[in-house]
């Protein structure tokens, strides 16, 4: 189809749940590229940001992302294959701390997932996204503003 013939994006789709994926360059971000290379489909309401190491994000970052409008977050790191010593453990620790904050705010803990995705983990990537998608279909978007 020529460019001019393409349908325009006409709605902002602001009402669909949004999923943030933080993909490490040595894990999930490259995994997402591998999924693309195989032309496998997953829902478009997923926004993947490249990160060098997920250990930089404190728990407040995740809570803020929920407040700002993300309904689900998947951290896709390379788990025990992470090239940065100490970073996967730290990431897991922060996610656990974030769960505490989520409990306090009565958020479903499944809205935040930590997944080990390697650079060629095509199927696990798709499964993670579908799992989150399914969950959001069931429990819906987060209310905004979030309950205190």
């Amino acid at each position: 189809m020529a460019e001019g013939e393409l349908p325009m994006a006409t709605s902002t789709n602001n009402n669909r749940p949004k999923i943030l994926i933080l993909g490490t360059l040595s894990g999930g971000y490259r995994g997402a590229d591998s999924v693309g290379q195989e032309h496998l489909e997953y829902p478009p309401n997923t926004y993947i940001l490249p990160v060098m190491s997920a250990a930089i994000f404190p728990e407040t970052f995740y809570m803020r992302a929920f407040e700002r409008g993300f309904d689900g977050i998947i951290v896709m790191f390379s788990g025990t294959d992470c090239p940065y010593k100490g970073a996967p453990e730290r990431t897991a620790e922060i996610i656990n701390k974030t769960y505490e904050l989520m409990k306090e705010r009565k958020l479903d803990l499944n809205r935040l997932r930590l997944a080990a995705i390697c650079t060629v983990c095509v199927r696990p990537f798709i499964e993670e996204v579908h799992k989150m998608e399914q969950l959001l279909d069931e429990i819906g978007k987060l209310p905004h503003p979030l309950p205190p």
């Binding site: 393409l6 349908p7 709605s11 590229d33 999924v35 693309g36 496998l40 478009p44 926004y47």
Partner: peptide
């Protein structure tokens, strides 16, 4: 911003949504 592997190649049945996603990622 990766618009091929992470957008057009995985959302080819949803061009409108793929365009919206591209706009949001470019805004980011």
């Amino acid at each position: 911003v990766g618009l091929r592997e992470q957008d057009s190649w995985v959302h080819y049945n949803h061009p409108e949504d793929a365009t919206e996603k591209a706009i949001r990622l470019m805004l980011a």
